[in-house]
Nucleic acid binder design. Structure first.
Lengths: 199, 199
DNA sequence: CTTAACTCGAACATTGATGTACGAGTTTCA
DNA sequence: TGAAACTCGTACATCAATGTTCGAGTTAAG
């Protein structure tokens, strides 16, 4: 679970948290994710209110804004890891990348926004350390595609990855702006990346 | 000039500003652009200090944070317009777009950062109104390329524009992160957009 | 040189956010 | 049921930012 040293208050002897406490923590993280991934400059008070919880209660579980931010990121990272485990990456890399994209693009997007809006609340090192494993998964997939001769090799690998994220982000922006229907997004994204990646 | 109703203090009868005042205004705008385009959350006090000017002096010229932001954006828009007037957009659209990109990508990038970091200081309507003319220039160029049969037509026009900006932004990020040499950026960008845009 | 424009620091009022302390109430769980 | 865990509002201290006021000094420009 996205825990670690989440709770500031001394937990009960059994090490278990009381049910209402756990419920509140979940609500806080849910609300926090929703707010943080939607806009910058979210305050702790806003998160508490959106979670239907007193501000003091929130501080009881997350001793500081930074700790709350870390918990949110941890949860998002785990969700991403789970999504990767769930997707089928066997077979040709280009088809596999397409599957990954179609199933995870909204998750990638949400987490990217979360990350953007949380910068300043956690150290760059901390962020990088958590984000690296995820980047490596995509990196492997692209490298495999290059080995198979499906993906281009004339551009830096890091650029291909960055461009991927960048276009996912752009697609979400288009949807938000009302210039692209959500249903069309996967197809547009997929077509764009096929063009961009192919040898 | 990026003026309008810039100055709050009553100007002299001649309508002219005194030379030292103009110098300070310029310094403030220079410093503001530098700071705002480099990171979010810039304070008025920081801009004043970076401009080598007292905070009160800054408020004398720009009555509020919002007015300062508007003046910065205005200046950036004018610079972009000037850049467009300076570039040769005649001949085949694909080659013209390539020229635009190579000569303006750093400007596009800086202004995009400025815009990102200034959101919240000005109203979306104001921003959109100023930004639209610039978007229209790119739009025309792409449409021409489609008419000439050089650019794809299977994706929405708005998406092609957004993708362009998005990749420019991504390229700048890569440079900042040290994963891409600044000299290589135009080539990488150009190659990527060729792939993405071609029929 | 004289005046009006301009600059400056210091001080103040206001606002909003963070984080803490307290004490009284409520809920879980054994 | 009873004790510990938990929640809540209120209140407080702190900090940083915005914007204003004042008055004394400096500088440009006719």
């Amino acid at each position: 679970m996205a825990d670690g040293k989440t709770s500031a208050s001394a937990r009960r002897p059994s090490g278990q948290r009381r049910a209402d406490a756990q419920r509140n923590i979940d609500n806080i993280l849910d609300a926090g994710l929703r707010l943080y991934s939607s806009r910058p400059g979210v305050s702790v008070a806003e998160v508490a209110e959106a979670a239907g919880v007193g501000r003091v209660t929130l501080y009881g579980h997350f001793p500081s804004r930074t700790e709350l931010a870390k918990a949110l990121m941890d949860r998002a990272f785990e969700e991403t890891e789970a999504a990767w485990r769930a997707v089928d990456t066997s077979g040709p890399a280009d088809a596999a990348l397409d599957r990954v994209l179609r199933e995870q693009w909204h998750l990638m997007e949400r987490n990217r926004n979360l990350r953007d809006n949380i910068i300043g609340d956690v150290s760059p090192q901390w962020l990088r350390q958590r984000h690296d494993p995820i980047l490596r998964r995509i990196e492997e997939l692209i490298t495999r595609g290059q080995d198979e001769g499906a993906f281009r090799t004339d551009l830096p690998l890091s650029w291909l990855i960055t461009a991927l994220y960048s276009l996912v982000h752009a697609a979400a922006d288009e949807i938000t702006a009302g210039r692209l229907a959500a249903k069309q997004a996967p197809e547009v994204l997929s077509a764009s990346l096929r063009s961009l990646y192919r040898q």
